[in-house]
Amino acid sequence: MILSVTGGKGGVGKTTMAYNVAAALDAVVVDADLGMADLPGRHGPDLHDVLAGRASITETLRSGPVDIVPCGRTLTGARACDLTVLDGALRRLEREHETVVVDCPAGRRADAGVPLAVADACLIVVSPQAFALADAIRTRELARELDAGLVAGVINRTVEQPPTGTIADTLGGPVEVVPADPRVGRSVVEERPVIESAPDSAAASAIRALARRVPATRSLDRR
């Protein structure tokens, strides 16, 4: 199962969601934001190298509480990426690790589209502000065009009750609400998924609920 985590805008929490949902799914998370990587990096080969044909994706795996395929941080590296390679690379990772969560860049360009086209399903992260919804709708359209089924919309960092029904209707799929929680925000930098750092929090249970919506895979069956 390849699950792309996407959203129309930058800064809505795609990376945080990808990381935490990957933790709940016991999955590998791939930082596919070629121009603006967010997941922790490391020395050695990264996704830029994979997409430039210099490394195999399995060589790039960085183990931790959630295994990460980091992405390079240079625009030079981003420019050198050949996205036609991504499909094979992600499939290879899937063969070895069963579930792969892909943190996608924002926008409607090829770097945002290809992970959706390759994915079996997607999560769309929405910020609760009304103006952010337009971007989420465009992303939903893109996902539909590229045949990435919507697992759920994620309304992230809510402080008050969002118009869940409206957003669900607009996206045409179920919606989970992840309340604002500083532990979620810190989870990526500290590499501590919220289901571990605060398993009883509302955010952790929302993330577990999201993970349960992801179509059954072997890793889910194990649970």
């Binding site: 240079t74 625009l75 996205l83 036609t84 991504l86 499909d87 860049p105 360009r109 090829a110 086209a117």
Partner: peptide, 28 residues
Amino acid sequence: AGGAAAIRRLGTHRPPADVVARIDGDVT
């Protein structure tokens, strides 16, 4: 393949060469 179709349809992800020179050159 879905990926190839997406690349054909959508705009390029590559940052323009002059931006790459300016950012990567000066910052890093």
